[in-house]
């Protein structure tokens, strides 16, 4: 079996006195789609944000591609990363947010091209071409010159996916990508994500879309009160969840 791309060992995290993550053990192997479900406030989004170091971890260990997130081993001890180490690390991980977070002052193509130009140091014409390719892949080439506020929520989220993919990430993180969308716009975003999963992308998806998890996910983890209390192939977690807490949640959302 290949080494995991993401490996969390007893990860803990607090906001003040509030313990958000309480010993999370988690693994994703390359090419896997790992879905995370659970009630709001259970720490699933916080955990996702720890993976690309938007949040820091207080205890335990978190490795991405074999390297400790936020620290470099120097001799006998770990040394914290500098700003540019974080930037370099995050450049290889795509992230899609619940609220899209498209750059409001840039049009769709510029949103996709910005990191290519300023992070990947691509020249402007090449970045623009690449941006158009990525927009075409999510079916939005016609909307390249529109500002975020001129696009529907579903279109904005597809631009956000294109923006993340343009950087050729080895891992994609999705933080409730369809929760802020009107119901009829959810499908177009899920389709883009399915296509990505079929293409072999490693994905960690925090979602409430049980159908997507069942159909596309390789593993499904159930978060509650800062830990994963159930994990396994989606079909088995969904049909015969062992913990009553998981079953109560699934009864509500299914």
């Amino acid at each position: 079996m290949t080494d995991p791309l993401v490996r969390a060992i007893a990860v803990t995290k607090s906001f003040g006195h509030n313990k958000v993550l309480n010993g999370v053990d988690f693994e994703v192997r390359p090419g896997e789609v790992s879905c995370i479900i659970g009630p709001s406030g259970s720490g699933k989004s916080t955990f996702l944000r720890c993976i690309n170091a938007l949040e820091t971890v207080d205890g335990g260990g978190l490795e991405v591609a074999g390297a400790q997130v936020g620290y470099t081993l120097e001799g006998e001890s770990y040394r914290p990363w500098r700003d540019r180490d974080f930037a370099k690390f995050r450049a290889g991980i795509g992230m899609v947010f619940q609220r899209f977070n498209l750059y409001a002052h840039l049009d769709a193509a510029e949103n996709v091209a910005t990191s290519l130009i300023n992070v990947a140091r691509m020249d402007k014409a090449a970045a623009r071409r690449r941006a158009m390719e990525e927009l075409d892949r999510v079916g939005l080439a016609d909307h390249a010159t529109k500002r975020p506020h001129q696009l529907s929520g579903g279109q904005q989220q597809r631009v956000a996916i294109a923006r993340a993919l343009a950087m050729d990430p080895t891992l994609m993180l999705f933080d409730e990508p369809t929760s802020a969308l009107d119901p009829e716009l959810v499908e177009e975003v899920l389709e883009s994500m399915k296509a990505l999963a079929l293409g072999g992308m490693t994905m960690v998806v925090v979602t409430h879309e049980i159908g997507f998890a069942r159909e596309v996910g390789d593993t499904l983890s159930f978060f509650d009160a800062g830990t994963i209390i159930e994990s396994g192939p989606p079909a088995s977690v969904l049909s015969d969840a062992s913990s009553p807490r998981t079953r109560a949640f699934l009864d509500k959302v299914l």
């Binding site: 700003d83 450049a91 947010f97 992070v119």
Partner: peptide, 15 residues
Amino acid sequence: GQTEAALAGGMTHMQ
């Protein structure tokens, strides 16, 4: 969210 998206996209704080 704008800052988070930029950081997630590999920019430094200055960028």
